[in-house]
Design a protein around this nucleic acid. Structure first.
Length: 276
DNA sequence: ACCAGCTCCTGCTTGC
DNA sequence: TGCAAGCAGGAGCTGG
């Protein structure tokens, strides 16, 4: 599922392939996926506009077309594919941007948990898709101290807190589990019981695991692909996620990875070395 | 504050 | 082999 590293890889790929190119036509195949936006608006506001740059906040992509920005959330199974018009379409195309030079950007999403929203650039702050989306967890301002501050007033499990996008955005199930394992903190540890030293370790683990994820091109379990259609390679580096019943990868740790459910989501962790 | 439980959706896996 | 139920989950919602 696309989390910060996957979305960052998509951001870079889309920018590399399409920056500076002008939209010729917009095709909406599944209007239900548009958030506070009509197909007409998309066509009218984007046609003839050039893609200036691609930004990202948490898991939300922002395609900057000058006066307007196109926000894209990939949800669970969303893909942004940069193709040529001669390429075959993927299996579940939902929105297509055709560009003047015969390249195209296809938003494909099997399970349709994603979304697309058009906003005026000077009203970006009002965007529905950015409501409840806090600062990016990969920004320079993020560290253990900032993480510790976000715990104030919260008594819930740390794992559940990390998935909440309002304080910091970008972490999803995979990287939250991986960061906690690297920091040797139990996913069940309550926020208010995290020590400053643990917060420092966790902040560092989050940065490192995200960087490694980006460098590997993200994690492909089944659906995720880069804009070029390639699989991410981080899966082989996962230490806990999806590894229930298998040996802990920490050198010398005799533990076996367990799966539990927190806030209706699977959590993977090692009971032997995540005791903090 | 925060959780359980539900919804959206499709495709894969499991069980009979 | 075939069918149906179960399951996966990001995020928003309601009710407790």
């Amino acid at each position: 599922m696309p989390e910060l590293p996957e979305v960052e890889v998509v951001r870079r790929g889309v920018a590399r392939a399409l920056k500076g190119k002008t939209v010729r036509r917009v095709t909406v195949l599944r209007p239900q996926m548009l958030v506070h936006t009509s197909p007409r608006q998309l066509q009218r506001r984007l046609k003839g506009r050039a893609l200036r740059r691609v930004r990202r906040r948490g898991k939300v992509l922002m395609l900057d077309f000058g006066d307007h920005m196109l926000l894209v959330h990939l949800g669970m199974t969303g893909l942004l594919l940069a193709q040529s018009r001669a390429d075959p379409l993927p299996s579940h195309p939902r929105v297509i941007l055709d560009f003047e030079d015969n390249s195209r950007l296809v938003f494909d999403d099997t399970r349709t948990f994603g979304g697309v929203e058009l906003v005026q650039t000077d009203r970006l702050a009002d965007a529905h898709m950015l409501r409840n989306v806090g600062p990016d967890v990969y920004a320079n301002s993020f560290d253990g101290a900032a993480l510790l501050r976000s715990f104030e007033g919260h008594r819930r499990d740390i794992k559940t807190h990390l998935l909440d996008q309002t304080h910091f955005s970008g972490l999803g199930n995979i990287y939250a589990c991986e960061a906690l394992h690297r920091a040797r903190i139990s996913p069940r540890k309550r926020c208010h019981r995290i020590t400053p030293e643990q917060a420092r370790r966790l902040g560092q683990a989050i940065r490192r695991v995200l960087r490694a994820g980006i460098e590997a091109g993200g994690t492909t379990f089944s659906d995720y692909r880069t804009p070029e259609g390639r699989e991410g390679q981080f899966r082989r580096m996962l230490r806990v996620y999806g590894r229930e019943g298998r040996r802990c990868k920490r050198p010398g740790c005799p533990g076996t990875i367990r799966r539990i459910v927190q806030a209706q989501r699977s959590t993977f962790y090692c009971p032997a070395c995540q005791r903090g």
